[in-house]
Design a protein around this nucleic acid. Structure first.
Lengths: 333, 333
DNA sequence: GTGAAAGCGCTAACAT
DNA sequence: ATGTTAGCGCTTTCAC
């Protein structure tokens, strides 16, 4: 059996209280006994049980991370950085892929609560507002990344999606593109990006054409199908803004299948800048979200919440950055 | 405060023992009281605490997954499937990215044990044999995926790497390639793949040339650098086998930088068949590991171990499958 | 069928 | 400076 605090106490000829104190560096212990206890702990390979300690009101030092899909590189990267930061701060991460499914979200949240996680991070795509409100009302430590729920007082770190949309569009505009299409997800961030797109068009005195916007309304719509639609338009767009890299890859496949030369005959931009961006050919021009920075910040925000040393709710908005690669090119006039 | 079993008991006018019994479906409870208790639980939104229940000797229903890097799509996909299977079976997953670093491995394992996880899954790249042996000796539930440690009696599910190497080489041989290089990782699976490669050469009565094998000995060597080396050889290879998709992408970049046309002037194959394989251009010919199947099987193996209904150790070896795409082409004679 | 009580490994008052 | 003790929320004998 694994040794318990009693084993250590007996072996070191002290009480369990004393052992507890040296474990937690609380109370006043003489150097001599501290040394003795430490020795015994070492020798017995004693590891305090966080289960037991959690039961007495302490933390579990575990947090839950809900994302739509761990197999999506964007979320995998978020998860990796959240994990790293958590690890630095002494917290473990339990993974929950929800597939944007309300039922799964609900189930996972309930599970996490049964396991007494100290807090939960919700990533882009969390759809179940009701649960969110409940958690929030109970003052359960919560933080959002890559998503914010307006009208809800939660900590969040997001990127300025409006600006991101604007930047992508402006870049294309600079390259003389006039017919710029958008492939969006059915999400708040996509909506913001579309807003940015419209504003950029407006600033350039260009008309907005509804037909150039396609929104993937389910997980099964692929970027390729959506791009197919767009590229079959009689007066096809010369550039497509894709709201994530997966969609962009689909668009590239579609274009290639139709024999279009990239980027000469069609410019494509993505968002997020994951590992996929440089893997494809041509390497994608994308608006980068500072994934690492964002991930570190949510973790920090959440931990502040957990430790109760947060005064007010924080909504941090980071700025996206246009990374120009080779999937966009000036349109010949 | 969250309601406890006492609250439910009081509200339902029964003892906590009774409540416990209805929660766990143990003992004999009359339908009437069961119904009453269930009602109260519902009404109070009562959720049993797994922390408390774990302390009384039950499971935590949590398992640890150690992988080198969650941001690597191959491991992210493993993690996703392991998570899914675990979730089906009622287990949560805590993520641990080790960066192939012995110290981190050790730290994470120790952490997982403090948290009383029910078992641990180790993925390819686990280097710390000592810990492994210790865990194994203590009969701690353990299972390996995409890696096996010979001479150690642990459950594992792997792919036949020797065969995989053979298949990739044979494919290239069929396409008339004679100078086939290999970019390998410093891992057991790569070594096996190289063995398969040698055997295929031998079967084709071709000589083995040591100079055509490069092994990435650190995480920082990129596929591109390694491929650069190879492609600068006076008598450069006409095909390169890359031991994972990341390396293959690097090789593609290197080739392109040198102005080589793919696959006409250079054939490239990868392994693993992650999302990256179809993202790149040309789409990669790779030897596919059945990631989903493997992940489900480790989880099942581990759960068997945890529930103690496993008699003997199992080493499952699945068979890889060559997926021919467009990164390989017959060599003009 | 149901309940009383001991105990899981630990923390934190409170004594000493 | 150290020890005693009462819980934390639950499971599990063992009575009744």
């Amino acid at each position: 059996m694994k040794p318990t605090i009693y084993d250590v106490a007996r072996e070191a000829s002290v009480s369990i209280a004393t052992v507890s104190k040296v474990i937690n560096n609380t109370g006043r212990i003489s150097d001599k006994t501290r040394k003795k206890v430490l020795e015994v702990m070492e020798q017995l390979h004693y590891q305090p049980s966080v289960v037991a300690s959690a039961l007495t009101g302490k933390r579990t030092y575990t947090i839950g991370l809900l994302i739509p899909d761990l197999a999506n590189p964007f979320f995998a990267e978020i998860a990796r950085y959240v994990e790293d930061r958590g690890n630095e701060m002494g917290f473990s991460l339990v993974m929950c892929s929800t597939d944007n499914n309300s039922k799964k979200e609900e189930k996972y949240i309930s599970l996490l609560r049964q396991k007494s996680v100290d807090g939960i991070i919700l990533a882009s795509g969390f759809t179940n507002d009701k649960i969110l409100k409940e958690l929030n009302k109970e003052k359960f430590p919560l933080a959002l990344i890559s998503q914010d729920i307006s009208g809800l007082s939660v900590d969040s770190v997001t990127v300025d999606d409006f600006l991101a949309g604007y930047q992508a569009t402006e870049h294309l505009l600079t390259l003389n593109h006039k017919k710029i299409a958008v492939i969006a997800e059915n999400s708040r961030s996509s909506k913001e990006r579309i807003r940015g797109y419209r504003e950029a068009l407006q600033d350039a005195k260009l008309d907005y054409d509804d037909n150039l916007i396609v929104i993937s309304d389910s997980m099964s719509d692929t970027g390729k199908q959506l791009a197919d639609q767009l590229l079959e338009l009689s007066d096809r767009p010369t550039a497509i803004i894709c709201c994530n890299n997966l969609l962009a890859i689909g668009a590239i496949h579609s274009a290639r299948e139709k024999g279009l030369i990239l980027p000469d005959e069609l410019s494509i931009t993505g968002f997020d800048d994951t590992i996929l961006a440089t893997a494809v050919e041509p390497p994608l021009t994308t608006v980068k979200q500072p994934i690492r920075e964002m991930s570190y910040q949510v973790m920090d925000l959440l931990i502040q919440k957990i430790e109760g040393k947060t005064s007010t709710k924080q909504k941090r908005v980071l700025v996206p950055k246009l990374i120009i690669r080779k999937s966009t090119k000036a349109l010949k006039q």
